Simulated assay, not measured.
Amino acid sequence: MPDILAQVLAMPGLGWLIAAALVAGLVRGFSGFGTAMIYLPVAAQVLPPLWAIVTLVVMDIFGPVPNLPRAFRDAHRRDLVLLIGGAFCLLPVGLSVLSLAAPELYRYGLSTVSLVLVACLALGLRYHGVLYPPLVAGIGAFAGFLGGLIGVPGPPVILFYMASTLPVQVVRANVLLFLFFFDFLLLGLVALRGDLSGFPVVLGLLLALPNIAGNVIGAMVFNPARTGLYRAMAYAIVAVSAIAGLPAWD
């Protein structure tokens, strides 16, 4: 462990990863989403795709912990179970496809998905139908596939589930809790595949500290009356991170 920690502390780009973890936690704290779409485009520039995802998962397990009690009080439990169950079905498929993808292709896919989501949300494109239970499970399944493929399970849940008629604090709580439990699913499957190594785990533990700090600050400033402002800020930060992460800038 000391040898791995020394390697982590000496790695190039560590400062950028710490900054990305802090900003990602801040945005998630006041919006309930955004961690992966902000952190991964930065991490993918200095780490292999799977390592970037593992550091995110390890970091993200701890980051939302201060906000879990409030989220459990506000959550809609049935929808949360459907989302997680659906994700479990297609997450292994996404991980299998990821193992075949080149790093540059991964980065283009990650940035593209993030930018498409921001564009859809900013333009007000929403699903306007009724969110019946099978559809909620299907949203979770698509999220699981994307989570395994590029480490970003949030877009389908955000794009479709934010059309729900549930109160904003309930939607925010369900998105936060879904992403939290998804991290355990992904980490467990990576371990079962034999792809879990010490370096990204230790790096993820280190990055958990600034991520937790960002989550706490973000939750402190969250005010349901200013939801529009928080969303606009989250969209802008995600878009900047996605554009900066494109391989074309290398």
Results as ranks from 00 to 15, higher is better:
Tyr235His: 08
Val116Ala: 11
Val152Leu: 04
Ser197Gln: 07
Val136Asn: 00
Tyr235Leu: 11
Asp183Thr: 12
Tyr127Cys: 02
Ala208Trp: 12
Leu187Asp: 09
Val201Leu: 03
Phe222Leu: 08
Ser99Thr: 13
Phe160Gln: 03
Arg193Asn: 07
Phe178Gly: 08
Tyr127Arg: 05
Leu115Gln: 08
Gly218Ile: 12
Tyr132Val: 15
Pro156Val: 15
Ala219Cys: 02
Tyr127Met: 06
Leu115Asp: 07
Leu177Phe: 05
Leu159His: 07
Ala232Val: 02
Arg231Asp: 08
Leu176Cys: 03
Leu192Ala: 11
Pro224Asp: 07
Ile217Phe: 06
Glu104Val: 15
Ala137Leu: 11
Ala208Gln: 15
Pro153Val: 11
Gly124Ala: 03
Ala122Leu: 05
Gly188Gln: 06
Gly228His: 09
Val118Asp: 02
Gly194Lys: 14
Ala141Cys: 09
Pro103Leu: 02
Phe184Ser: 01
Ala219Ser: 13
Gln169Ala: 01
Leu186Val: 13
Val116Glu: 04
Ala219Pro: 04
Ile217His: 00
Asn223Cys: 10
Arg126Gln: 15
Leu166Met: 04
Ala191Gly: 09
Met162Tyr: 05
Arg126Glu: 13
Gly148Phe: 03
Ile150Thr: 07
Tyr230His: 13
Ser164Val: 12
Ala225Arg: 12
Leu121Thr: 09
Ile243Arg: 00
Met220Thr: 15
Leu146Ser: 10
Leu192Lys: 08
Gly151Phe: 03
Pro133Glu: 08
Tyr235Asn: 11
Tyr127Asn: 07
Val221Phe: 03
Gly228Cys: 05
Pro155Gln: 06
Val170Asp: 00
Thr112Pro: 01
His128Lys: 05
Pro167His: 04
Leu131Asn: 05
Gly214His: 08
Arg126Cys: 09
Leu146Tyr: 06
His128Ala: 07
Gly151Asn: 07
Leu209Gly: 07
Leu98Tyr: 13
Leu187Tyr: 12
Ile217Asn: 00
Asn223Val: 14
Asp195Tyr: 08
Leu123Gln: 12
Leu121Lys: 01
Val152Pro: 06
Glu104His: 02
Ile139Asp: 05
Ala244Ile: 12
Val216Tyr: 08
Leu121Ser: 08
